[in-house]
Design a binder for these strands. Structure first.
Lengths: 120, 120
DNA sequence: CGTCGGGTTCGATCCGCGTCGAACATCGGC
DNA sequence: GCCGATGTTCGACGCGGATCGAACCCGACG
């Protein structure tokens, strides 16, 4: 990695202080019902769509939603994360959400493509 | 049709008595959130799986579920039907549910295949 | 004609989800 | 070192969904 991109804690893996304790930044791609339930919500679906359109499938949290409160957005991030669809990534200390396209594709081939295509 | 297969009212389209009034037997395939929500429930997912495995994608209602009440099953049938995933079909007067594979495939190509493959 | 099997409808219940506001934590900048 | 921006967490609330039992309807069969 040539820039500050890091997956996990903001401080990276230098063994330093644990800045965000107990925060699982990533999870395995869940079962079919879990993944479908995560994608069934319009708000989350829009988030996924924006990430898919973003360069490197990564976007700042604030750029993924409109017209809802921060706490609500955070809740949706958690659902997507626990379904294994996204992960937290830190770029120069700034928190981003990344769509785990490859991992989801491996476990459920073609699903995300079908879903995203169906939005048009 | 060489046998008694009929879509719609049990009496077919001979202009006879309306045996099941106000019962929409089929609906257009819904939006992505609607379809995903319909597929997100484990009970309905199992129903879809059994229909997909059945010959002609058609099965008797009673053969699509276990360990739940009739009324609950009927509710799930309604959800699937209103999402456009299934339709009611009468074979020699016996009510069946048919998975509308072609119609879903046309609107959301690859989705059902991905979902069903992910169950294995 | 009475009965049985199979589905639907209705009402009630219960639980989970989406939403918000407020409080807290963290990071970057002045 | 303080402050603003950004996310997370924690209750609380309301709504919709999943479930059940009971009643009803219809076709088949004796």
């Amino acid at each position: 990695m040539t820039d500050g991109t890091t997956t996990g804690s903001p401080v990276g893996s230098d063994g330093g202080s644990q800045a965000l304790p107990g925060l699982p930044d990533v999870a395995e791609v869940g079962t079919v019902p879990v993944v479908l339930a995560a994608l069934a919500d319009p708000v989350r679906l829009e988030m996924v769509r924006r990430m898919a359109d973003a360069p490197d499938r990564t976007a700042r949290c604030v750029g993924l939603y409109d017209d809802i409160g921060k706490s609500t957005a955070s809740h949706h991030f958690k659902v997507l994360r626990e379904a294994g669809l996204t992960e937290r990534t830190y770029i120069d200390g700034a928190l981003h959400q990344r769509l785990r396209l490859a991992e989801v594709e491996q476990r459920l081939p073609g699903l995300l493509a079908s879903v995203l295509a169906g939005l048009g």
